[in-house]
C-alpha cells in the first residue's frame, strides 16, 4: 500500500558479486598494521566516465609496510572503441600481444582479487569512477571498499606555512619527485600503482609520527 516505505527489493546479483560482498564485515579492521591495502591505477581512453573505457588495471597489495609482488594484479581490457590519441601516452597498443579480457571478465577477476582491501590510489576519485561505471554497465552496484586518496594524504604531510598553498593539487609526478621516488615506469598502470604504493608508505610513516594509527584517522583527511 504505502510502497515508498517498503524496502526496495534487492535485485538478484550474480554469484561472484555475492561472494565479494560477503567478505565485508560490519566491523572493519582499524589498526593500520592489520589492514590489506590494494594500491591501484587504471589507464583509460580518456576522462569521460560515460564515453571512455579502461584499457588496463594495475594493482598491488600491501600489508604492514610490506608490498607483496606476489599479490599483484594486472589486466588488459579489449576495446570496442579505439582512441588513437591515448595510445601514445599509455603505450598500450590495441591488440598488443598481451592477453586481453572483456571488461566484464576483467572486473569479475578484479572483485575476486580485491576482496575487502582498502583501496589506495592517486586522485582516487577518477579510478573509482571508472571502475564503478564499468560495474554499472554490468548492472552491479558500486565497489564497497573504503578508499584512500594519496593526493590529500600527501598534502596533509606538508608543513603548515603560509608559503605552502594548501588548496592546490599535486600530480603523481610532483609527489614522486618530492618524495624522491624514481618515475621510470610512469604511464603503465602497474608502474603507476607501484609508485603510488611507495609514496603511500612514505606518507604513512610521516602521518604515523603525527599520531595517525587507525584507518579512521586516515579516512578523515581530505
Amino acid at each position: 500500500m504505502i510502497r515508498w516505505f517498503k524496502k526496495k527489493e534487492e535485485p538478484e546479483y550474480p554469484e561472484f558479486w555475492k561472494s565479494y560482498a560477503a567478505k565485508f564485515s560490519d566491523k572493519p579492521v582499524q589498526q593500520l598494521e592489520d589492514i590489506r591495502f590494494v594500491v591501484l591505477d587504471t589507464e583509460t581512453t580518456g576522462f569521460d566516465f560515460r564515453k571512455d573505457r579502461m584499457l588496463c588495471i594495475g594493482a598491488i597489495g600491501l600489508k604492514n609496510n610490506v608490498i607483496d609482488v606476489a599479490d599483484s594484479f594486472e589486466i588488459y581490457i579489449k576495446q570496442e572503441r579505439f582512441n588513437p590519441e591515448t595510445v601514445a601516452i599509455h603505450g598500450i597498443i590495441r591488440n598488443e600481444k598481451v592477453t586481453m579480457q572483456t571488461e566484464a571478465d576483467a572486473l569479475t577477476k578484479f572483485l575476486e582479487y580485491i576482496e575487502d582491501a582498502v583501496i589506495v590510489a592517486h586522485h582516487a576519485g577518477f579510478d573509482l569512477g571508472m571502475i564503478n561505471h564499468g560495474l554499472k554497465r554490468m548492472h552491479l552496484p558500486n565497489l564497497k571498499n573504503s578508499v584512500l586518496d594519496t593526493m590529500p594524504l600527501y598534502r596533509s604531510t606538508l608543513i603548515n606555512s603560509n608559503f605552502v598553498d594548501k588548496t592546490r593539487g599535486y600530480s603523481l609526478d610532483e609527489v614522486a619527485e618530492k618524495l624522491v621516488i624514481s618515475t621510470k615506469d610512469r604511464h603503465t598502470a602497474a608502474g603507476d600503482a607501484m609508485i603510488t604504493a611507495i609514496a603511500f608508505l612514505k606518507i604513512l610513516s610521516k602521518l604515523k609520527k603525527s599520531g595517525a594509527t587507525t584507518l579512521k584517522d586516515l579516512l578523515k583527511i581530505r
Binding site: I60, V69, S72, E74, K184, D185, A189, A190, A193, M194
Partner: peptide, 9 residues
C-alpha cells in the same frame, strides 16, 4: 598474466 612490476624488479 603479464606482471610489469615483477619485470622491473
Amino acid at each position: 598474466m603479464r606482471n610489469t612490476i615483477a619485470e622491473r624488479i
